[in-house]
Amino acid sequence: MPTVNLTVNGKAVSANVESRTLLVNLLRENLALTGTHVGCDTSQCGACVVHVDGQSVKACTMLAVQADGAKVTTIEGLANGDTLHPMQEAFRDNHGLQCGFCTPGMVMSAVCLVKDRPNITEHEVREGLEGNICRCTGYHNIVQAVLAGAKAMGR
């Protein structure tokens, strides 16, 4: 089985994986980072979004071996200890989550979407979240949260 070496949430990790193992399975099963979720089989729902070298990526759509040498950030690595990232704080303050299952992917997508765009518009946020499905919130409060998070990140 191939060995992959990567940095996850700032820590160097190494794992033996089958060549067919997906990045999301490496994170969930080998590294016990269960905050990254699997919501579909077709790269549609975005529950598994993580950052790979600073870009938002659906971890169900990348083989673990493709992440060899990469820097990966998962939802577990976003907050600074118990201090939430501004986007996490915005989701809490705007009730941007209900069951919480889509939330990690939604937050990780949002962070990349609004980076350096403090004045992003509602329309741009709605279009920009095209790759993430939420069944609970009706998106209204997610959009409010992302707009607020964008402003907070710009400060």
Partner: peptide, 19 residues
């Protein structure tokens, strides 16, 4: 009141069955 559930869900610390 802001939800007390949110901290665990926002930080990836929820415990769903598959976890």
């Amino acid at each position: 009141v802001r939800r007390r559930e949110d901290f665990r869900f926002l930080t990836g610390r929820g415990t769903y069955t598959d976890d």
